[in-house]
Write a protein that binds this DNA or RNA. Structure first.
Lengths: 124, 124
DNA sequence: TGATTGTTATAGTATATGTATAACAGAAAG
DNA sequence: CTTTCTGTTATACATATACTATAACAATCA
């Protein structure tokens, strides 16, 4: 697996998990229709509790990244509502951009940051 | 004051405070050299505890937005290290962009989101 | 002197996080 | 049918974080 958990991080374990799975989907290491490890399996693999993995999966389902199936487990399934996604992205970025402006980062420089991250994920 | 706290939010009070002050600086409602209300005064004004405001101020100082002076109080004072700021911005945006890619948001659309937020803050 | 500043200390409550067990219903495979 | 695997749910406990409540301190300034 591509998951690596930092137990010393101040970020909650289930959020680290959720974030890395989202990055996994973005980079196409995880593709639509693919099945994630079962909560017990992944928990055992990482060395954390089942419920922590379950919470990450629940969040991912609620955010429209996976569907949970009692027989198959967690399946990557993207629920795409673009207007909603853009609205959410705007909310997520407001404080980040405010910080940037305080630190004298121009709109053009912000664009460059965006581009570099898209490039990290293999998009140019 | 321009501060409005949502007690039903899942976001910590001191983080709401910290975020709104950063936005205040970005929009130039708060300018370099200006003094923020004292921790007791602002706490009283909002209806929260002194320590909560103090924590917000401490975070803002640690992040280089204000300096704390025993006589004057908290003074807006931007410590600008652009390389560090860009690095931090990149970190803040990684998961946001991963989410965006999953939701089929293109680089160009991300640029537009950036631009709209800069516009919100009066920059075009 | 008296009021105000940030700072520090202590203590209590509430919530969030993570763990530990356990059990359940549905589905798949033997 | 039995076994084994899913996600799901329930309970309980420990720990950390967030927030509040008082209180006191040194430094500053009117």
């Amino acid at each position: 697996m591509f998951i690596s958990i930092d137990f010393n991080s101040d970020e909650a374990l289930y959020m680290q998990l959720r974030n890395q799975i989202i990055v996994g989907i973005a980079t196409e290491m995880l593709k639509e229709g693919e099945t994630l490890p079962s909560v017990r399996q992944l928990a055992d693999n990482i060395g954390i509790n089942m419920h922590t993995v379950n919470k990450a999966y629940s969040v991912l389902r609620q955010e429209g990244f996976v569907k949970l199936d009692r027989r198959k487990g967690a399946v990557v399934s993207l629920d795409i509502d673009k207007l909603k996604a853009i609205d959410e992205m705007t909310k997520d970025m407001r404080v980040v951009i405010a910080k940037a402006i305080c630190k004298d980062i121009s709109k053009e420089e912000a664009h460059m940051v965006i581009d570099s991250i898209y490039a990290e994920y293999g998009i140019d």
